[in-house]
Design a protein around this nucleic acid. Structure first.
Length: 481
RNA sequence: GGCGCAUUCGUCUAGUGGUCUAGGACGCCGGCCUCUCACGCCGGUAGCACGGGUUCGACUCCCGUAUGCGCUACCA
Protein backbone atom coordinates (compact mmCIF):
# COMPACT_ATOMS: atom_id res chain seq x y z
CA UNK A 1 0.00 0.00 0.00
CA UNK A 2 1.76 3.10 -1.15
CA UNK A 3 0.13 6.30 -0.13
CA UNK A 4 1.22 9.87 -0.56
CA UNK A 5 3.27 11.31 2.24
CA UNK A 6 1.37 13.58 4.56
CA UNK A 7 3.11 15.46 7.35
CA UNK A 8 1.73 17.97 9.77
CA UNK A 9 2.72 20.76 12.05
CA UNK A 10 0.51 20.97 15.10
CA UNK A 11 1.23 24.02 17.23
CA UNK A 12 -0.75 24.89 20.28
CA UNK A 13 -1.71 28.55 20.20
CA UNK A 14 -0.37 29.51 23.59
CA UNK A 15 2.22 32.06 22.55
CA UNK A 16 4.43 33.09 19.70
CA UNK A 17 5.99 30.62 17.30
CA UNK A 18 9.02 29.30 19.14
CA UNK A 19 12.22 28.81 17.21
CA UNK A 20 12.24 25.10 18.07
CA UNK A 21 8.71 24.65 16.81
CA UNK A 22 9.61 26.60 13.71
CA UNK A 23 12.36 24.11 13.03
CA UNK A 24 9.87 21.26 13.43
CA UNK A 25 7.54 23.02 11.01
CA UNK A 26 10.33 23.57 8.50
CA UNK A 27 11.33 19.92 8.61
CA UNK A 28 7.77 18.71 8.17
CA UNK A 29 7.35 21.08 5.27
CA UNK A 30 10.59 19.96 3.65
CA UNK A 31 9.68 16.29 4.05
CA UNK A 32 6.26 16.78 2.48
CA UNK A 33 7.65 18.81 -0.41
CA UNK A 34 10.51 16.38 -0.92
CA UNK A 35 8.04 13.53 -1.32
CA UNK A 36 5.58 15.54 -3.35
CA UNK A 37 3.08 15.01 -0.56
CA UNK A 38 1.00 17.30 1.59
CA UNK A 39 1.85 19.50 4.54
CA UNK A 40 -0.99 20.00 6.98
CA UNK A 41 -1.41 22.64 9.64
CA UNK A 42 -3.46 21.71 12.68
CA UNK A 43 -4.13 23.93 15.66
CA UNK A 44 -4.06 22.09 18.97
CA UNK A 45 -6.16 24.31 21.15
CA UNK A 46 -7.60 21.84 23.62
CA UNK A 47 -6.03 23.70 26.51
CA UNK A 48 -8.69 26.34 26.83
CA UNK A 49 -6.90 28.02 29.69
CA UNK A 50 -3.89 28.95 27.62
CA UNK A 51 -5.00 29.00 24.01
CA UNK A 52 -5.74 32.35 22.43
CA UNK A 53 -6.95 33.61 19.10
CA UNK A 54 -4.10 36.12 18.96
CA UNK A 55 -1.51 33.39 19.34
CA UNK A 56 -3.02 31.42 16.51
CA UNK A 57 -3.00 34.45 14.25
CA UNK A 58 0.58 35.27 15.10
CA UNK A 59 1.75 31.71 14.54
CA UNK A 60 0.08 31.56 11.13
CA UNK A 61 1.64 34.88 10.23
CA UNK A 62 5.09 33.67 11.22
CA UNK A 63 4.73 30.45 9.24
CA UNK A 64 3.75 32.46 6.21
CA UNK A 65 6.68 34.76 6.71
CA UNK A 66 8.94 31.73 6.84
CA UNK A 67 7.50 30.73 3.50
CA UNK A 68 6.05 27.46 4.71
CA UNK A 69 2.89 27.01 2.71
CA UNK A 70 0.44 24.41 3.93
CA UNK A 71 -1.96 22.42 1.82
CA UNK A 72 -4.63 22.03 4.45
CA UNK A 73 -5.25 24.07 7.56
CA UNK A 74 -7.71 26.09 9.61
CA UNK A 75 -7.75 28.96 7.14
CA UNK A 76 -7.37 27.02 3.89
CA UNK A 77 -9.63 24.10 4.72
CA UNK A 78 -9.26 20.62 3.25
CA UNK A 79 -10.93 17.24 3.17
CA UNK A 80 -9.87 16.17 6.64
CA UNK A 81 -11.09 19.24 8.49
CA UNK A 82 -11.84 20.99 10.64
CA UNK A 83 -8.23 21.76 11.46
CA UNK A 84 -8.76 23.28 14.87
CA UNK A 85 -9.10 20.75 17.64
CA UNK A 86 -11.68 22.85 19.45
CA UNK A 87 -13.90 22.34 16.40
CA UNK A 88 -13.48 18.58 16.41
CA UNK A 89 -15.08 17.86 19.74
CA UNK A 90 -17.76 15.58 18.33
CA UNK A 91 -15.08 13.42 16.77
CA UNK A 92 -13.25 13.02 20.05
CA UNK A 93 -16.51 12.36 21.85
CA UNK A 94 -17.60 9.57 19.53
CA UNK A 95 -14.19 7.95 19.61
CA UNK A 96 -14.04 8.21 23.37
CA UNK A 97 -17.42 6.51 23.53
CA UNK A 98 -16.08 3.68 21.41
CA UNK A 99 -13.28 3.06 23.88
CA UNK A 100 -15.60 3.26 26.86
CA UNK A 101 -17.87 0.80 25.09
CA UNK A 102 -15.03 -1.63 24.54
CA UNK A 103 -13.85 -1.09 28.13
CA UNK A 104 -10.46 0.16 27.08
CA UNK A 105 -11.17 3.27 29.05
CA UNK A 106 -12.80 3.89 32.41
CA UNK A 107 -14.07 6.90 34.34
CA UNK A 108 -11.83 8.17 37.12
CA UNK A 109 -13.31 10.16 39.95
CA UNK A 110 -10.12 10.95 41.81
CA UNK A 111 -9.61 14.59 42.65
CA UNK A 112 -6.45 16.51 41.99
CA UNK A 113 -5.75 16.52 45.72
CA UNK A 114 -6.10 12.77 46.04
CA UNK A 115 -3.85 12.24 43.06
CA UNK A 116 -1.23 14.59 44.40
CA UNK A 117 -1.29 12.92 47.79
CA UNK A 118 -0.69 9.49 46.32
CA UNK A 119 2.00 10.86 44.07
CA UNK A 120 4.02 12.26 46.92
CA UNK A 121 3.60 9.00 48.82
CA UNK A 122 5.01 7.06 45.89
CA UNK A 123 7.85 9.52 45.57
CA UNK A 124 8.61 9.20 49.28
CA UNK A 125 8.73 5.44 48.98
CA UNK A 126 10.94 5.68 45.92
CA UNK A 127 8.39 4.08 43.65
CA UNK A 128 7.58 5.03 40.10
CA UNK A 129 4.96 7.76 40.21
CA UNK A 130 1.96 6.58 38.32
CA UNK A 131 -1.73 6.08 38.74
CA UNK A 132 -2.49 3.30 41.20
CA UNK A 133 -5.65 2.09 39.50
CA UNK A 134 -7.94 3.39 42.22
CA UNK A 135 -10.96 3.80 39.94
CA UNK A 136 -10.12 1.03 37.54
CA UNK A 137 -12.61 -1.50 38.89
CA UNK A 138 -15.19 0.68 40.51
CA UNK A 139 -18.56 -0.96 41.07
CA UNK A 140 -21.73 0.56 39.79
CA UNK A 141 -22.57 1.55 43.36
CA UNK A 142 -19.23 3.30 43.86
CA UNK A 143 -19.71 5.24 40.69
CA UNK A 144 -23.19 6.29 41.73
CA UNK A 145 -21.81 7.43 45.06
CA UNK A 146 -19.16 9.63 43.45
CA UNK A 147 -21.64 11.01 40.97
CA UNK A 148 -23.93 11.88 43.83
CA UNK A 149 -21.08 13.80 45.42
CA UNK A 150 -21.05 15.86 42.28
CA UNK A 151 -17.74 14.50 41.03
CA UNK A 152 -17.35 14.64 37.29
CA UNK A 153 -15.07 11.89 35.98
CA UNK A 154 -12.06 12.15 33.74
CA UNK A 155 -11.36 9.17 31.50
CA UNK A 156 -8.37 6.92 31.87
CA UNK A 157 -6.90 4.57 29.37
CA UNK A 158 -6.09 1.05 30.60
CA UNK A 159 -2.42 0.67 29.88
CA UNK A 160 -2.06 -3.09 29.95
CA UNK A 161 1.07 -4.07 28.13
CA UNK A 162 4.38 -5.77 28.59
CA UNK A 163 6.24 -3.15 26.69
CA UNK A 164 5.88 -1.00 23.62
CA UNK A 165 8.45 -0.85 20.87
CA UNK A 166 8.36 1.40 17.88
CA UNK A 167 10.74 2.04 15.03
CA UNK A 168 11.77 5.66 15.00
CA UNK A 169 12.86 6.97 11.61
CA UNK A 170 15.78 8.75 13.24
CA UNK A 171 16.75 6.77 16.30
CA UNK A 172 15.76 3.25 15.36
CA UNK A 173 13.96 0.94 17.77
CA UNK A 174 12.77 2.56 20.97
CA UNK A 175 11.38 0.36 23.71
CA UNK A 176 9.51 1.42 26.80
CA UNK A 177 8.53 -1.08 29.48
CA UNK A 178 4.79 -1.23 30.06
CA UNK A 179 5.01 -0.71 33.78
CA UNK A 180 6.26 2.79 33.13
CA UNK A 181 3.09 3.89 31.48
CA UNK A 182 0.37 3.71 34.10
CA UNK A 183 -3.26 4.36 33.26
CA UNK A 184 -3.26 7.80 31.74
CA UNK A 185 -6.05 10.28 31.25
CA UNK A 186 -7.21 10.79 27.70
CA UNK A 187 -10.15 13.07 28.40
CA UNK A 188 -10.59 15.63 31.13
CA UNK A 189 -13.66 15.90 33.28
CA UNK A 190 -16.05 17.68 30.99
CA UNK A 191 -14.89 15.69 28.00
CA UNK A 192 -12.11 17.91 26.68
CA UNK A 193 -9.58 15.50 25.15
CA UNK A 194 -5.96 15.38 26.29
CA UNK A 195 -3.06 15.83 23.91
CA UNK A 196 -2.20 12.16 23.50
CA UNK A 197 -5.78 11.28 22.61
CA UNK A 198 -6.69 14.13 20.30
CA UNK A 199 -3.36 13.79 18.58
CA UNK A 200 -3.96 10.15 17.72
CA UNK A 201 -7.50 10.69 16.50
CA UNK A 202 -6.42 13.59 14.34
CA UNK A 203 -3.27 12.06 12.95
CA UNK A 204 -5.24 8.99 11.98
CA UNK A 205 -8.25 10.77 10.52
CA UNK A 206 -6.04 13.23 8.70
CA UNK A 207 -4.08 10.30 7.30
CA UNK A 208 -0.75 11.56 8.49
CA UNK A 209 1.93 9.17 7.31
CA UNK A 210 4.91 10.59 9.15
CA UNK A 211 4.72 12.20 12.54
CA UNK A 212 7.79 14.37 12.85
CA UNK A 213 8.08 16.19 16.15
CA UNK A 214 10.49 17.20 18.90
CA UNK A 215 12.11 14.39 20.86
CA UNK A 216 10.42 15.62 24.02
CA UNK A 217 7.57 13.52 22.64
CA UNK A 218 9.49 10.25 22.58
CA UNK A 219 8.06 9.20 25.92
CA UNK A 220 4.55 10.02 24.75
CA UNK A 221 4.73 7.84 21.72
CA UNK A 222 4.14 4.48 23.46
CA UNK A 223 0.94 5.84 24.97
CA UNK A 224 -0.21 7.00 21.58
CA UNK A 225 0.62 3.64 20.05
CA UNK A 226 -1.53 1.96 22.67
CA UNK A 227 -4.42 4.16 21.60
CA UNK A 228 -3.88 3.29 17.94
CA UNK A 229 -3.96 -0.37 18.92
CA UNK A 230 -7.13 0.07 20.94
CA UNK A 231 -8.84 1.30 17.79
CA UNK A 232 -7.21 -1.34 15.65
CA UNK A 233 -5.47 1.34 13.61
CA UNK A 234 -2.03 1.19 12.06
CA UNK A 235 0.17 3.87 13.62
CA UNK A 236 2.02 6.27 11.32
CA UNK A 237 5.79 6.34 11.20
CA UNK A 238 7.45 8.43 13.87
CA UNK A 239 10.52 10.61 13.68
CA UNK A 240 11.72 12.42 16.77
CA UNK A 241 14.03 15.27 16.05
CA UNK A 242 16.56 16.54 18.58
CA UNK A 243 15.92 19.59 20.71
CA UNK A 244 17.45 22.99 20.21
CA UNK A 245 19.48 24.13 23.21
CA UNK A 246 20.73 27.46 24.47
CA UNK A 247 24.45 28.22 24.89
CA UNK A 248 24.33 26.67 28.37
CA UNK A 249 22.96 23.46 26.85
CA UNK A 250 19.64 23.97 28.56
CA UNK A 251 16.44 23.84 26.59
CA UNK A 252 16.16 27.07 24.64
CA UNK A 253 14.09 29.54 26.62
CA UNK A 254 13.41 33.22 27.22
CA UNK A 255 16.50 33.38 29.40
CA UNK A 256 18.63 32.94 26.31
CA UNK A 257 17.23 36.01 24.61
CA UNK A 258 15.16 35.88 21.45
CA UNK A 259 13.29 32.59 21.16
CA UNK A 260 10.42 33.36 18.86
CA UNK A 261 10.34 33.78 15.13
CA UNK A 262 8.75 37.21 15.27
CA UNK A 263 11.65 38.47 17.36
CA UNK A 264 14.11 37.35 14.74
CA UNK A 265 12.07 38.99 12.04
CA UNK A 266 12.07 42.23 14.01
CA UNK A 267 15.81 42.05 14.50
CA UNK A 268 16.25 41.95 10.77
CA UNK A 269 16.89 38.34 9.94
CA UNK A 270 15.79 37.16 6.52
CA UNK A 271 13.38 34.26 6.39
CA UNK A 272 15.53 32.47 3.81
CA UNK A 273 18.49 32.69 6.16
CA UNK A 274 16.50 31.55 9.17
CA UNK A 275 15.04 28.60 7.28
CA UNK A 276 18.48 27.66 5.98
CA UNK A 277 20.09 27.95 9.40
CA UNK A 278 17.39 26.05 11.25
CA UNK A 279 17.47 23.28 8.65
CA UNK A 280 21.14 22.79 9.35
CA UNK A 281 20.58 22.15 13.03
CA UNK A 282 20.87 18.36 13.25
CA UNK A 283 20.87 17.96 9.49
CA UNK A 284 23.56 18.36 6.88
CA UNK A 285 23.78 18.27 3.13
CA UNK A 286 25.77 15.43 1.69
CA UNK A 287 27.60 17.99 -0.42
CA UNK A 288 28.90 19.68 2.70
CA UNK A 289 27.50 22.99 1.48
CA UNK A 290 25.84 25.17 4.06
CA UNK A 291 24.28 27.99 2.12
CA UNK A 292 21.36 26.14 0.61
CA UNK A 293 18.32 27.36 -1.26
CA UNK A 294 14.92 26.05 -0.31
CA UNK A 295 14.97 24.00 -3.50
CA UNK A 296 18.17 22.27 -2.46
CA UNK A 297 16.94 21.81 1.09
CA UNK A 298 13.92 20.03 -0.32
CA UNK A 299 15.64 17.95 -2.94
CA UNK A 300 18.56 16.89 -0.76
CA UNK A 301 16.61 15.99 2.35
CA UNK A 302 17.13 12.53 3.74
CA UNK A 303 16.20 11.10 7.14
CA UNK A 304 19.48 9.25 7.35
CA UNK A 305 21.35 12.54 7.51
CA UNK A 306 19.45 13.72 10.58
CA UNK A 307 21.49 13.44 13.74
CA UNK A 308 20.18 12.17 17.03
CA UNK A 309 21.72 14.65 19.39
CA UNK A 310 20.56 18.06 20.51
CA UNK A 311 22.07 21.15 18.93
CA UNK A 312 23.04 24.45 20.50
CA UNK A 313 21.55 27.48 18.79
CA UNK A 314 24.56 29.55 17.75
CA UNK A 315 23.52 33.13 17.11
CA UNK A 316 26.94 34.07 15.76
CA UNK A 317 26.68 31.58 12.97
CA UNK A 318 23.15 32.71 12.22
CA UNK A 319 24.46 36.27 11.98
CA UNK A 320 27.12 35.19 9.53
CA UNK A 321 24.62 33.32 7.43
CA UNK A 322 22.17 36.19 7.48
CA UNK A 323 24.99 38.47 6.32
CA UNK A 324 25.63 36.11 3.43
CA UNK A 325 22.00 36.31 2.39
CA UNK A 326 21.98 40.09 2.71
CA UNK A 327 25.07 40.39 0.53
CA UNK A 328 23.47 38.15 -2.07
CA UNK A 329 20.41 40.36 -2.37
CA UNK A 330 20.34 42.84 -5.22
CA UNK A 331 20.43 46.46 -4.17
CA UNK A 332 16.83 47.19 -5.16
CA UNK A 333 15.52 44.27 -3.13
CA UNK A 334 17.60 45.15 -0.09
CA UNK A 335 16.48 48.76 -0.33
CA UNK A 336 12.89 47.62 -0.37
CA UNK A 337 13.47 45.69 2.85
CA UNK A 338 15.42 48.49 4.49
CA UNK A 339 13.08 51.33 3.58
CA UNK A 340 10.30 50.71 6.13
CA UNK A 341 12.82 50.06 8.89
CA UNK A 342 14.78 53.24 8.32
CA UNK A 343 11.66 55.27 7.68
CA UNK A 344 10.34 54.01 10.98
CA UNK A 345 13.53 55.10 12.67
CA UNK A 346 12.85 58.63 11.56
CA UNK A 347 15.23 58.97 8.62
CA UNK A 348 13.81 61.29 6.00
CA UNK A 349 13.55 59.12 2.95
CA UNK A 350 10.52 58.86 0.71
CA UNK A 351 11.14 55.70 -1.23
CA UNK A 352 13.17 52.58 -1.45
CA UNK A 353 14.50 53.79 -4.77
CA UNK A 354 15.93 56.87 -3.13
CA UNK A 355 17.72 54.64 -0.66
CA UNK A 356 19.56 52.55 -3.24
CA UNK A 357 22.81 54.55 -3.38
CA UNK A 358 23.20 54.20 0.36
CA UNK A 359 22.14 50.58 0.37
CA UNK A 360 24.94 49.77 -2.00
CA UNK A 361 27.40 51.42 0.35
CA UNK A 362 26.37 49.58 3.51
CA UNK A 363 25.30 46.23 2.11
CA UNK A 364 28.54 44.47 2.91
CA UNK A 365 28.71 45.98 6.38
CA UNK A 366 25.47 44.71 7.88
CA UNK A 367 24.51 41.26 9.07
CA UNK A 368 20.99 42.09 10.12
CA UNK A 369 18.62 44.56 8.50
CA UNK A 370 18.40 46.49 11.75
CA UNK A 371 22.16 47.08 11.68
CA UNK A 372 21.44 49.56 8.92
CA UNK A 373 20.00 52.00 11.45
CA UNK A 374 23.47 52.76 12.75
CA UNK A 375 25.37 52.40 9.50
CA UNK A 376 23.17 54.82 7.68
CA UNK A 377 23.38 57.62 10.25
CA UNK A 378 26.44 59.21 8.67
CA UNK A 379 24.49 59.98 5.51
CA UNK A 380 21.79 61.93 7.28
CA UNK A 381 23.64 63.93 9.90
CA UNK A 382 23.35 67.67 9.38
CA UNK A 383 26.69 68.44 10.98
CA UNK A 384 29.86 66.54 11.51
CA UNK A 385 31.37 66.34 14.93
CA UNK A 386 35.08 66.92 14.69
CA UNK A 387 35.69 66.71 18.40
CA UNK A 388 36.31 63.03 18.55
CA UNK A 389 39.84 62.56 19.93
CA UNK A 390 40.92 60.33 17.07
CA UNK A 391 39.38 62.68 14.54
CA UNK A 392 41.28 65.59 16.06
CA UNK A 393 44.52 63.68 15.80
CA UNK A 394 44.03 63.28 12.07
CA UNK A 395 42.89 66.86 11.59
CA UNK A 396 45.81 68.33 13.47
CA UNK A 397 48.41 66.84 11.14
CA UNK A 398 50.12 69.51 9.10
CA UNK A 399 49.60 67.43 5.99
CA UNK A 400 45.86 67.48 6.61
CA UNK A 401 45.73 71.24 6.30
CA UNK A 402 47.53 71.04 3.00
CA UNK A 403 45.11 68.42 1.79
CA UNK A 404 42.12 70.54 2.73
CA UNK A 405 43.50 73.64 1.09
CA UNK A 406 44.35 71.71 -1.99
CA UNK A 407 40.95 70.02 -2.02
CA UNK A 408 39.21 73.40 -1.94
CA UNK A 409 41.42 74.77 -4.67
CA UNK A 410 40.82 71.84 -6.94
CA UNK A 411 37.07 71.73 -6.39
CA UNK A 412 36.70 75.46 -6.80
CA UNK A 413 36.00 75.17 -10.48
CA UNK A 414 34.26 71.82 -10.37
CA UNK A 415 30.60 71.84 -11.27
CA UNK A 416 29.64 68.39 -10.13
CA UNK A 417 31.04 65.88 -7.68
CA UNK A 418 30.15 62.26 -8.12
CA UNK A 419 31.85 58.91 -7.87
CA UNK A 420 33.25 59.23 -11.39
CA UNK A 421 34.79 62.64 -10.87
CA UNK A 422 36.03 61.87 -7.37
CA UNK A 423 39.02 59.73 -8.27
CA UNK A 424 40.50 62.24 -10.75
CA UNK A 425 39.85 64.90 -8.17
CA UNK A 426 41.81 63.09 -5.50
CA UNK A 427 44.57 62.52 -8.02
CA UNK A 428 44.72 66.24 -8.59
CA UNK A 429 44.80 66.91 -4.86
CA UNK A 430 47.61 64.43 -4.55
CA UNK A 431 49.60 66.11 -7.26
CA UNK A 432 49.15 69.63 -6.03
CA UNK A 433 49.81 68.77 -2.39
CA UNK A 434 52.34 66.03 -2.87
CA UNK A 435 50.55 64.00 -0.24
CA UNK A 436 49.32 60.49 -0.87
CA UNK A 437 48.02 57.33 0.76
CA UNK A 438 46.58 57.52 4.25
CA UNK A 439 47.73 61.08 4.77
CA UNK A 440 45.68 62.06 1.78
CA UNK A 441 42.56 60.02 2.27
CA UNK A 442 42.05 59.97 6.01
CA UNK A 443 41.75 63.72 6.50
CA UNK A 444 39.19 63.86 3.72
CA UNK A 445 37.23 61.03 5.28
CA UNK A 446 37.32 62.65 8.69
CA UNK A 447 36.43 66.09 7.37
CA UNK A 448 33.47 64.68 5.49
CA UNK A 449 32.12 62.28 8.08
CA UNK A 450 33.80 63.02 11.40
CA UNK A 451 34.74 59.36 11.57
CA UNK A 452 37.82 57.29 10.87
CA UNK A 453 35.82 54.36 9.61
CA UNK A 454 33.00 54.29 7.13
CA UNK A 455 31.75 53.31 3.71
CA UNK A 456 33.44 53.87 0.40
CA UNK A 457 34.34 57.54 0.07
CA UNK A 458 33.52 57.94 -3.60
CA UNK A 459 29.98 56.79 -3.03
CA UNK A 460 29.67 58.86 0.11
CA UNK A 461 30.84 61.96 -1.67
CA UNK A 462 28.32 61.44 -4.42
CA UNK A 463 25.53 61.20 -1.88
CA UNK A 464 26.63 64.41 -0.15
CA UNK A 465 27.17 66.43 -3.30
CA UNK A 466 29.72 69.10 -4.06
CA UNK A 467 28.38 71.87 -1.90
CA UNK A 468 28.22 69.89 1.32
CA UNK A 469 31.65 68.42 0.75
CA UNK A 470 33.24 71.83 0.20
CA UNK A 471 31.46 73.20 3.23
CA UNK A 472 32.71 70.41 5.46
CA UNK A 473 36.25 70.57 4.21
CA UNK A 474 36.22 74.31 4.83
CA UNK A 475 35.01 73.68 8.36
CA UNK A 476 37.70 71.10 8.89
CA UNK A 477 40.33 73.51 7.66
CA UNK A 478 39.10 76.14 10.09
CA UNK A 479 39.01 73.59 12.85
CA UNK A 480 42.53 72.37 12.21
CA UNK A 481 44.06 75.84 12.47
C1' G B 1 13.55 8.30 42.40
C1' G B 2 11.92 5.41 37.81
C1' C B 3 12.16 5.08 32.58
C1' G B 4 13.78 6.80 27.79
C1' C B 5 17.34 9.23 24.70
C1' A B 6 21.94 11.40 23.60
C1' U B 7 27.66 12.19 23.92
C1' U B 8 33.59 14.11 17.47
C1' C B 9 37.16 21.11 17.83
C1' G B 10 34.02 26.76 22.15
C1' U B 11 29.54 25.99 18.55
C1' C B 12 27.06 23.45 14.03
C1' U B 13 28.70 19.10 11.79
C1' A B 14 31.42 15.03 8.15
C1' G B 15 32.75 10.26 9.47
C1' U B 16 28.68 3.75 9.33
C1' G B 17 36.09 -1.24 11.38
C1' G B 18 41.64 -0.05 8.17
C1' U B 19 41.57 5.65 3.09
C1' C B 20 41.66 9.60 10.19
C1' U B 21 48.84 11.97 11.76
C1' A B 22 39.83 12.92 12.16
C1' G B 23 37.46 16.69 7.02
C1' G B 24 34.22 21.25 6.46
C1' A B 25 31.63 25.68 8.53
C1' C B 26 30.97 29.67 12.39
C1' G B 27 34.02 32.04 15.99
C1' C B 28 38.96 33.34 17.25
C1' C B 29 44.23 34.50 15.67
C1' G B 30 47.72 35.90 11.63
C1' G B 31 48.46 37.54 6.54
C1' C B 32 46.97 39.53 1.68
C1' C B 33 43.77 43.17 -0.68
C1' U B 34 42.95 48.42 0.74
C1' C B 35 41.96 55.63 2.30
C1' U B 36 39.31 53.19 6.93
C1' C B 37 35.79 49.62 8.25
C1' A B 38 33.66 45.67 5.95
C1' C B 39 33.69 42.12 1.95
C1' G B 40 36.80 38.63 -0.46
C1' C B 41 41.08 35.46 -0.51
C1' C B 42 45.12 32.64 2.01
C1' G B 43 46.97 30.35 6.44
C1' G B 44 46.62 28.92 11.67
C1' U B 45 44.10 27.42 16.43
C1' A B 46 41.12 23.60 18.65
C1' G B 47 37.86 17.72 19.19
C1' C B 48 36.59 11.49 18.98
C1' A B 49 33.59 12.13 27.63
C1' C B 50 35.89 8.03 30.66
C1' G B 51 36.81 2.68 31.67
C1' G B 52 36.45 -2.15 30.11
C1' G B 53 35.74 -5.60 26.27
C1' U B 54 35.11 -7.68 20.77
C1' U B 55 38.78 -7.56 16.70
C1' C B 56 44.87 -8.45 13.37
C1' G B 57 42.88 -3.33 13.72
C1' A B 58 38.33 0.91 16.77
C1' C B 59 35.83 7.75 16.33
C1' U B 60 33.18 3.77 14.23
C1' C B 61 30.51 -2.66 17.39
C1' C B 62 29.16 -4.40 22.80
C1' C B 63 28.96 -3.46 28.22
C1' G B 64 29.58 -0.21 32.32
C1' U B 65 30.51 4.78 34.41
C1' A B 66 29.96 9.96 34.03
C1' U B 67 27.51 14.05 32.14
C1' G B 68 23.40 16.28 29.71
C1' C B 69 18.47 16.39 28.03
C1' G B 70 13.44 14.54 27.99
C1' C B 71 9.08 12.17 30.04
C1' U B 72 7.08 10.74 34.64
C1' A B 73 0.05 16.53 34.56
C1' C B 74 -7.43 16.46 34.14
C1' C B 75 0.02 21.03 29.49
C1' A B 76 1.19 20.32 24.53
Amino acid sequence: MSQTVRTRFAPSPTGHLHIGNARTAILNWIIARHAGGQFILRVEDTDQERSTQESEASILKDLQWLGLDWDEGPDTGGNAGPYRQSERMDLYKSHLDQLIESEKVYPCYCTAEELEERRSEQLAKGEATQYNGHCRNLSYVDKQKYEAEGREPAFRFKADTESVTFEDLIRGAVTVPGDQLGDFIIARAGGMPMYNFACVIDDHLMEITQVVRGDDHVSNTPRQILIYQAFGWTPPQFAHIPMILGPDRQRLSKRHGATSVDQYREQGYLSDALVNFLSLLSWSSESGDEILTRERLISEFNFSRLSKSAAVFDTEKLDWMNGMYIRNLDVAELSRLLFPILKDRGYSIDSAKELEPITGLIQEKIERLSDANEKVAVFFKEDVNLNDPEARDVLSLSTSKQVFQSFLDVTDELSELNRETFMPLMKAVQQSSGIKGKELWMPVRVALTGQLHGPDLAGTVEWFGLEKCRKRVTQALEFSK
